[in-house]
Design a protein around this nucleic acid. Sequence first.
RNA 1: UCCUUCUUAGCUCAGCUGGUUAGAGCACAUGACUGUUAAUCAUGGGGUCCUUGGUUCGAGUCCAAGAGAGGGAGCCA
Length: 507
Amino acid sequence: MQKYLIKDLAKYEGQDVTLMGWASNKRESKGLVFIVLRDGTGWCQCVVSLETVGENLFEEARKVSLESSLTISGKIIKDERQMGGFELQATSVTLIGESIEYPIANKEHGVDFLMDKRHLWLRTQRQWAIMRIRNQIIFAIHKFFQEEGFVQMDAPLFTGNACEGTSNLFETDFYGDTAYLSQSGQLYGEAMAFSLGKIYTFGPTFRAEKSKTRRHLSEFWMIEPEMAFYDIFDNMNLIENFLRYVTTEVLQNCEKELVIIGRDTSILKNISKPFPRLSYDEAVKIIKGEQDVNGKNAITSLEEELKMVQARMQAIKEEILQREEKLKVPGMKKGEIGFNQAQIDKLKQELADCEEQERNIPQWLNSARNFEYGNDFGGSDETVITRLFDVPIMVYNWPHAVKAFYLKRDPADSRFARGVDVLAPEGYGEIVGGGERETDEKLLIEKIKEHELPMEAFEWYLDLRRYGTVPHAGFGLGLERLVTWLCKLPHVRESIPFPRMYGRLLP
RNA sequence: UCCUUCUUAGCUCAGCUGGUUAGAGCACAUGACUGUUAAUCAUGGGGUCCUUGGUUCGAGUCCAAGAGAGGGAGCCA
């Protein structure tokens, strides 16, 4: 039915076509109506002129409201002023579905409102671009692993055993038994790797963490490769190649989308540089400010950041005052008043964000200064350290006590486990967690007891050590966190079509 | 679970130390304007100021409790 797509307009220059879509914007003056049509592949301005279409059709076009659906036929004309470079001069307009009082206006909205209207919010250009980048990332992930000889093999979503404790699992009824929604397919991944060699899972994951932060979701998509005959260093090489591949694909294929969301791609282009690999010991020194990175110190640069935030707040306050003074002067045009008002609203939102930061940074400074050797990194510690780098960093060899039971004890120093976390730059923090797996059955049993996990649930897992164990490793990538970083989003909730998070089940 | 900020029109926000009928812009409706890209002009409709209780001659404004939301800690990808 749909023959002509907006993305292909260049092919149809000078021809008559019929476009089908939704009116994303409309402006009108006497004798002319401008409808910006979107069809999912792009946006195109359509001009309806009274002279060309006549009284009746013109009235129809005038009735078109925001997000009503319609069919427009007409000739494609080159017009450099337009996004995409073309516009359509309409010969006919047919309304398909009307749209009365569309709630999302062409202006700033609050998050709560937009989240309630997520099903409509997705229609905006920015969300369109993010979803296309998400799609490109997913495609690139599959391409990478398939080209590297991995087999996609998925783990079950209902599980009878808790991988790392039950406190953050969703409980459900499975024919009278308690089942949990999977929070990781990793243990199954190990079993699959011992059959197919190199595998990856790609599926949803559920965590009942009552977290309300910009990087947590209750339901998110995770990619978990697992490889037989890989040690932690092979694993780190793979992670680095993988992230570089996916990022490069996005840079190459999503140029237009990155422009729409205003992403500064210079940092993403650094992906070709090697990722720094820091041992836990080094990373702790950097967090505590005892060691500089590229001449930058974690503590002092955070203090500077705080000062910058405060200076910015002062500047915003002054600009708001200035604009408010301007508004008081009589005789300003109505349109200019509206523009200034919109600017003030925008500035106020930025001010609120700055105030938030002004409250948070001292807490982060405090926790960085008082970081206790041996602890796991908190969200703020990750932020503190990744601000110093312009590429992802890998932190490996963690104190075994703070990490999962299945990680391999470092043969060289038994205080450590061979885990690796990848932290994205620009303050985004952990996007990948992985490591080499423990192969020693006795050590595993010890760990399971130490974590007070039910031994009988892990019998099958221990079989993997009893029947031909080999060195193996793997990692888990949080898809939404990668999307969030690559798009530099302020919050993970924009990286998935319908986010599920603490306190959010609708729409 | 804890800390912190917030809740006034469909949306984004004003509303000073409590004081007549609660304001603006956007959106919407009607009309005017031959080309607009969130900036043309006029007019108009639209509010249980989150809820409950208290202080007061008088509460959107002060106090208390509750509900909802934002951000952070813990936990994590």
